[in-house]
Design a protein around this nucleic acid. Structure first.
Lengths: 193, 193
DNA sequence: TACCCCATGTAATCAGTTACATGATTAT
DNA sequence: ATAATCATGTAACTGATTACATGGGGTA
């Protein structure tokens, strides 16, 4: 009888867990730290929540991929990579990254735009354009910081460049939208029900 | 005592369900038809599976948002919008579309690139570049078809334009990647373990 | 001392995917 | 006849989100 008694930790690592292992290569970190690091470094193309992180940590500690270190101040619980964890990560990282998942609610609303009150649609578009512009500005700031700070990790640079390229493309797209969608057709109206 | 006895169907419609209601404005359709329509019209920025569709249909029928029509040939079960469904959709469509969810495993792998065997990374990049090029070609084909076919729904056009803008930006980004990531640094090696 | 932020986690739920199961109809 | 494809669905599971709950430690 092959698959007996729970088969511990033989499953393929999920991408979120793997990324945590990746970060842990830099030294022991707590769940809190990992959330921060992840948000900063991969947050724009790989979202994760605290709950998820704590759960993955528990699971991985259980599977022996990480080991709890000494409790720090407050309730800090740093985890360190084990050799198994290092091996599991090395294995994961050689696997073909899956296809991207993109879900853009705004596009869904636009696609169904026929049924959306035009001034509402224009509001949505405007709000999202603003948000994207802010993101672009943030990315460009990060690029400048990296350049002036002498930081030159080509990998981080590449992902940041992706963000910039993406946001620029999106902004151009916004700016090319017809007035029927952007709402430029009513240059007077500013009020609202 | 306010929230008593299960409060049927008062929850906010999810985007997938809402999109189905949107499609049903064109007339009664079966789950099968809806999957097709969704794949064609919103599939590139809003994926859904058959399972999901049948489940949402069952749920919505239960909630009175759609009504089962007469069974057709084979096991076809067309559903029609009810007035409640129309109202629920109208309400949903006025809500601010949420933030986009983007998960790009390739970027995750690149971000952790420090730990990836370089020739492996280059393989991944190449494979994904190819896939994106194919998508761009497909979108451009769709644009041509729309133009020559005289179809001119500005909403569908806008989403298609987004796809094109996105894919072009991604391809440009691929082409600007440094050799350390793209793998151009080893113009000889083609073999592999 | 009171408040805010750090830091941890659990519970419940929802959304999405994969695999499985079944049968009718049309085309060859 | 048989194969392909249309068409529906269930079950099991994974992954992600939201809400809730708790308490320590630093700062005003």
């Amino acid at each position: 009888m092959p698959q007996d008694r729970a088969a511990p930790s033989v499953r393929r690592l999920n991408a979120t867990a793997a990324s945590l292992l990746g970060f842990l290569h830099a030294g022991p970190m707590t769940g809190w730290d990992l959330v921060e690091a992840a948000e900063r470094l991969i947050g724009d193309f790989w979202s994760l929540t605290r709950s998820q992180v704590y759960r993955e940590l528990a699971t991985m500690a259980n599977a022996g991929l990480i080991r709890e270190g000494e409790r720090g101040v407050r309730a800090r619980r740093p985890y360190a990579l084990t050799d198994e964890g290092r091996a599991a990560f090395a294995e994961w990282v050689r696997l073909e990254p899956g296809p991207e998942t993109i879900r853009i609610p705004l596009l869904l609303t636009i696609g169904l735009g026929r049924h959306v009150p035009p001034e509402r649609l224009a509001q949505f578009v405007e709000a999202h354009r603003t948000a994207h512009a802010a993101r672009l500005a943030r990315y460009e700031g990060m690029q400048r910081d990296a350049a002036s700070g002498g930081v030159d990790d080509p990998y981080v640079t590449a992902t940041l460049d992706f963000g910039v390229a993406y946001e620029r493309a999106v902004l151009d797209w916004f700016d090319g939208l017809p007035p029927a969608i952007r709402g430029g057709a009513r240059p007077d109206a500013l009020s609202d029900p």
